[in-house]
Each structure stands twice: as C-alpha cells, then as structure tokens.
C-alpha cells in the first residue's frame, strides 16, 4: 500500500490539538513542558471547555504558556499563581481554573500560596512540573533538586548539610484536607503520557464537581540544564528521580 493512500484526512488518528496555537514553542528540544501543554490542550478540547477555562502561568520557563494554549490566561508573579486562581475561581465559579507551575515557583517562593490554596480546598487544578532544577535562570538548585545532583548553585552536588533536603511537596499537599486528588505522573513515554492525560482530565472533572483542589505533579526533564540529550535525560529521570519521587496516586476521593 502506498503511503499516499494512507495519508488521507479520513485515516487521521492523531494530530495537533485545536486548542494548541500555531506558535513554535520556545522550549528547548525535548522539553517536557510541550508534552504537558499538549495533554492539557487535549483535555480542554475533549471536555469542550475552551471558552470556560482560565489558565494561570508562572514565572519560569513556562511563563509563556499563554502563547501555546488558545485560552484566556493570567500571568502571575513568581509563586503567586494559586492566589490568582483562588480569586478567579471564587469570582467566576462557572470557570475551570488551573495553575501551571514549576518546582521553583510552586515549592520554593510560592510555598505559602500553594499550601493555603490547597488547604482551603479551592476548586482549582494545579499542574506542578517537577524537573528538580531552575530552568529559565540557567540551572540553579531547586527545592526538589536531588541530593548529590549538580546544578549551577550546587556545582559539587547538593549536600544536605549545606543545602537542605529535596522537598517532597506533593506528599505534603496530600496531607491537606482541602485536596481531593493528588497524584504524581510523568511523560517520558506514550504510556505514561496517556496516564498523565487521564489524571489531568480527572482533575478538571473534579473541579466541576466542587470536590476541592486537584493536584497533578508531573516529574519532568530539563535536559538542557541537566546537560544530557533529551533521550538520556528521560533515562536519568527514570533511574534517579522516580526512586525519590515515586509515581502514582497519593489521594483520590
């Protein structure tokens, strides 16, 4: 069978989500942000909620998330996205409101905002990208940087006595009464990406049912700052991050 006979509109089984814009992403080749953006776009499209969704982008590499998902966006000050989301959801209860935050934004400078938004049980979705490093500023230590991990500010590896311990913030969040769904996922292969998409979908559905805060951590790579190829970075993540940040649901009620 000729390829031309296969490549016909009626045979299309997968393509770019219509909720994604045509802008070329500024992310480095192989960056997980793009994959997670795509999964969110697909969920918004499949739920038919493009006109009801408001995204809140952080400070960090994904500050420009608004260039890629064709919805209304607010760009927050560093760490404050959950505060924006709180007011947005309370003032516009018919909307789906989600924050998209990296580990520096959510687990370092924005710790108070995320803990309290989750503890109040705001009916929002939190997408938490954990790649154990600061991306945009050039690879400095994040709160989630692993012990021994080399970064621009831990050039000899993170040491507990000097730099403290990596923060399992998702485990903390799972303890809070206000959260209804807390899960840790990844996107390094098709199976994991499909699971993450299901988790994101469940989180959005929870928010419509006013069940409380849904929190989806996605363990991701930052191959540029890890100084690995995209494929090697995925391997490093599986070998080093998953043992410390084990995947799976921590809470689902």
């Amino acid at each position: 069978m000729d390829i031309k006979d296969i490549i016909k509109p009626e045979n299309k089984v997968y393509g770019k989500s219509p909720v994604l814009t045509d802008n070329i992403m500024h992310y480095c080749p192989g960056c997980s942000h793009g994959t997670v953006h795509k999964l969110i776009a697909e969920v918004i499209d499949e739920m038919g909620i493009q006109d009801k969704t408001i995204g809140i982008s952080p400070v960090g590499c994904s500050v420009f998330a608004y260039n890629y998902l064709d919805i209304d966006w607010q760009q927050a000050a560093h760490g404050r996205a959950p505060a924006l989301a709180t007011a947005t959801k309370r003032l516009c209860p018919d909307k789906y409101v989600f924050t998209y935050q990296g580990d520096g934004d959510l687990a370092s400078i924005g710790t108070a905002e995320i803990i309290h938004a989750c503890n109040r049980g705001e009916n929002i979705v939190v997408i938490f990208i954990n790649n154990a490093i600061y991306g945009m500023t050039g690879g400095q230590m994040a709160p989630t940087t692993l012990l021994g991990q080399v970064t621009a500010t831990t050039p000899y590896g993170r040491r507990a006595d000097l730099n403290g311990f990596p923060l399992k913030i998702t485990e903390l969040i799972a303890q809070l009464e206000g959260t209804c769904y807390v899960t840790r996922q990844s996107v390094q292969n098709a199976a994991s990406a499909r699971k993450t998409k299901k988790a994101i979908r469940k989180a959005f559905e929870n928010s419509a049912m006013n069940k409380g805060t849904s929190f989806v951590e996605v363990v991701c790579t930052c191959n540029s700052n890890w100084k690995l190829s995209p494929v090697k970075a995925n391997q490093w993540m599986v070998e080093n991050m998953f043992p410390f940040y084990p995947l799976g649901d921590m809470k689902d009620r």
Binding site: M1, I6, K12, Y14, G15, T35, K38, N189, A190, A193
Partner: peptide, 30 residues
C-alpha cells in the same frame, strides 16, 4: 522522518510523546 515507512503501524506513540506536537498520524486497516 519515516526512515523505515513500511514498519509503521500508526500506533501514535511518537505523536503522543512529541513535545512540540509536530507529528500527525494516519492509519488504515488492511
């Protein structure tokens, strides 16, 4: 690119993991 086009089954794994959403997948039953 499709280096080995005859092998493709249209499983969509490639497009699912593509960070830049640049892959469209087509599939037929034969």
């Amino acid at each position: 690119y499709m280096a080995n086009p005859d092998a493709c089954t249209g499983c969509t794994n490639c497009a699912t993991v593509c960070p830049d959403s640049v892959i469209t997948v087509y599939r037929v039953k034969i």
